[in-house]
Amino acid sequence: MSTAVMDKAEAEAKGPASHLITVTLRIRRYNSEVSDEPWWDDFQVDVDPKDRVLDVLHTIKWEHDGTLTFRRSCAHGICGSDAMRINGRNRLACKTLIKDIGPEKPISVEPIKGLAVLKDLVVDMEPFFQAYRDVMPFLVTTGNEPTRERLQSAEDRERFDDTTKCILCAACTSSCPVFWNDGQYFGPAAIVNAHRFIFDSRDEAGEQRLEILNDKDGVWRCRTVFNCTDACPRGIQVTKAIQEVKRALITRRF
């Protein structure tokens, strides 16, 4: 207790900015109105180690270079806008603290891979959302609509609980080497969202979704690389979900 007070007093004695550290952000820039080649920009910024990468990007955009372009909306890890490749790994800029990613060395920030870069860190998400739409990510039922909620037991809900967490940030899909090589592959995110409905006891279009994912660009292209599970900022067991869809396809057939 006393040491904590001492530390605080010491910190205050050193001046208001003493807790700040200088980090170098190495950002991969692209602007089609300047060049057809991307380039790297280094920015040196004084930041609190407990700041997030998104805060540093804001500092750069607001105070150093207003042309820096990136997506962000809620800034709290829910909207899924600011997935980017930070130090070579796909993360959400709003959930990554500077102190956790080695601020002694330059921190590299790139757009996510496998999608067309439009400007700086902004990519064209359309192929990603096309794959998402293809798996019919909505409840499909037959018969009359009930007059109250469609009830479900806790166990039935638990079956697909993990895959309900997806925020569609594309961190998984754009970390998948099969997707990098072949944009035709549905990608982990689409399969996760199909999984969410395939294993929902209230849904009745599981067969159709399985049929879609049984195609040549469906789940069979998964090589269980586990990049998607590592990349998921929501901690979804993505590869496990893909394997469960594979198992459902096989047990359906045999």
Partner: peptide, 18 residues
């Protein structure tokens, strides 16, 4: 400059876009 506002560089498509 080779590229400017009216004449932007073509978007680099990822391999085999749908």
């Amino acid at each position: 400059r080779e590229f400017d506002v009216d004449n932007p560089a073509p978007v680099i498509e990822p391999p085999r876009t749908r």
